[in-house]
Structure formats: structure tokens, C-alpha cells
Computed example of a mutant assay.
Amino acid sequence: MQSLIIAVLIGAVAGWLAGNIVKGGGAGLIGNIVVGIVGGIIAGWLFPTLGLSIGGPLIGAIINSTIGAVVLLFVLSLFRK
């Protein structure tokens, strides 16, 4: 249960940060959580594939999830146009 709460909090922070980085990317609290968690999944797949490793456990997870969420929002913006 504790890891689920931590994942949701990291997802919320990462989604909020990504929404501020990508114009028009803000999606509200629930949307930011979803974008952040999906971003974490994307980064969890993408970074080991590229051989990258960033930071420690908490800050690294936020940075990884934020980068993954930015990638997700960028790809979604391509489809919106």
C-alpha cells in the first residue's frame, strides 16, 4: 500500500512538472497523476534500453518519470494537431 501511495505522489509531481514544461500539457490532478505514472513506465523501458541511469531512488524516480511524461505529452501533442 505504501509503494502505491509513493507511486501516485511521484506521478503527480512528474505530471505537474511535465505539464509545465510542455505547453498545453496540464491535465488536472488526476490527469497529471496518470501522465506521470505512464511517463515513469515509459522511462523505465526507455532508459535501460539506451543505457541511461539517473539519480537516486526518490529524486531519480521523479526525474525519470518527468522525462517520460514530457516524451508522452510531446507524442500526444503531435496527434492533437
Rank of each mutant, 00 (worst) to 15 (best):
I30Q: 12
G68A: 10
I37V: 15
G56K: 01
G55F: 06
G44Y: 01
L9D: 01
I42W: 00
G39D: 00
L4R: 11
A69P: 12
I21R: 10
N64A: 15
L50V: 05
P48G: 04
L72E: 08
W45F: 13
A18Q: 06
W16S: 12
G60W: 05
A43G: 03
G39T: 00
G31V: 05
A14K: 07
G15A: 08
F47W: 07
L50F: 10
S77K: 12
M1R: 08
V70M: 10
I10P: 01
V22L: 12
F79N: 04
S77P: 12
A18G: 11
G51C: 03
V70T: 11
I41F: 06
I37K: 00
K81S: 14
P48V: 06
G56E: 04
G51T: 06
N32M: 04
L76D: 07
I62K: 02
G51H: 10
G11P: 03
F79S: 10
V34Y: 03
V13C: 12
Q2P: 10
N20A: 13
K81T: 13
L73V: 10
A12W: 14
V71H: 02
I62Y: 05
F79E: 03
L72S: 08
V75L: 15
G40K: 00
V22I: 15
K23M: 10
V38L: 12
S53C: 03
S65I: 00
L17K: 07
L9Y: 04
L73K: 15
T49G: 10
K23Q: 14
L52C: 07
F47R: 04
L52K: 07
V8P: 01
G56R: 09
L4S: 11
A14M: 06
L9P: 02
L50Y: 05
W45T: 07
A7R: 08
L29Q: 09
I67W: 02
G24P: 08
G39N: 00
L4E: 09
I62L: 05
V38C: 04
S65P: 02
P48D: 02
G28I: 11
L9I: 14
I63M: 05
W16D: 07
